[in-house]
């Protein structure tokens, strides 16, 4: 199954009930680069029937690297492989209830590992970050490689859910650099972990209960490294419409010169849990 990346229409204007996933997204080349090496997928599915209803979401942001178009090919390949795998191995079984309930964290990891193999084989000079999240059954599952980020946004607060696999982040953790020095460091773009670099890949995982009514922001470093966090929070707090918020965030990065590609996916989490799930429940 091949999916067009980031071609899902956003449904923020519909009068949908608040129990579904709504999202906005945007990706922009910025002003400092000739091509956009970022890619994203937003896949939100709602099932509603007499037996109950469920929402399933998969959101992926990838920031490619490598010359000769290899970066954009790597990020695009990565998100397509991840999305293909998750839809097939997680979403469809959940929808039909025919197979055993998938372990969602593991399915997401399998997708990312498969994308690593695909990029390693097909794009030997390319690589990419990937930050991927599944939202289902009252939980958020996140897999992270590289320095794209996932944030949880609640009111005027935002908290990074991921840890950058970057040299400067590691130096900050070891108190060898201050965050301010890291922000200015000439090697701030250097990653120590990325998709497509080695068959051996470790993933950072996070499973958390869904904070109902909060928002999940996935973005590339063209946003978070450029726009100060306080400004991002102002924009998010002032813009309830998630598509409009994404567009404003991208505009803000461009206002700072847009040195890198900018990608943002913003998900409005439901206000209440699913009533029932069509398939068998997952773990527990």
């Amino acid at each position: 199954m091949a999916l067009e990346p980031a071609q899902v229409t956003n449904n923020h204007t519909l009068q949908a009930p608040v129990d579904t996933l709504r999202f906005g997204h945007g990706s922009d080349v910025g002003q400092g680069r000739k091509n956009n090496q970022d890619a994203c997928t937003a896949f939100a599915a709602t099932y509603a029937a007499a037996q109950g209803r469920m929402s399933f979401g998969l959101f992926v942001v990838a920031d490619g690297m490598g010359g000769h178009m290899d970066g954009e090919k790597a990020s695009s390949l990565c998100i397509r492989v991840v999305t293909d795998h998750v839809v097939e191995a997680a979403y469809l079984p959940l929808l039909t209830g025919q197979d055993e309930a998938p372990d969602l964290m593991e399915t997401l990891n399998e997708g990312v590992l498969a994308s690593n193999l695909a990029v390693t084989e097909q794009m030997p000079n390319g690589g990419t970050t990937v930050t991927a999240a599944i939202i289902y059954g009252g939980k958020i599952y996140i897999t992270q490689v590289g320095d794209s980020r996932a944030y949880l946004v609640e009111g005027r607060h935002m908290k990074a859910l991921t840890r950058d696999h970057s040299l400067v982040q590691r130096l900050v953790e070891l108190e060898q650099l201050t965050p301010e020095q890291a922000a200015e460091h000439p090697h701030r773009n250097i990653l120590y972990r990325a998709i497509g670099q080695s068959e051996h890949l470790e993933l950072d995982n996070k499973i958390m209960p869904m904070p109902f009514g909060a928002r999940l922001l996935l973005c590339s470093d063209g946003l978070w490294m450029v726009v100060p966090e306080a400004e991002m929070m102002d924009i998010l707090a002032a813009t309830p419409n998630s598509q409009a918020a994404c567009e404003k965030l991208i505009a803000a990065a461009n206002a700072y010169g847009g040195p890198d590609n900018i990608t943002a996916v913003l998900v409005d989490l439901p206000d209440c849990p699913d009533i029932a799930e069509p398939g068998p429940t997952t773990d527990r």
Binding site: M65, G127, L167, N189, I190, L191, S198, D260
Partner: peptide
């Protein structure tokens, strides 16, 4: 300034 990984070099 070029985005890159340090894998295999550092």
């Amino acid at each position: 300034g070029q985005k890159g990984t340090m894998i295999g070099t550092e």
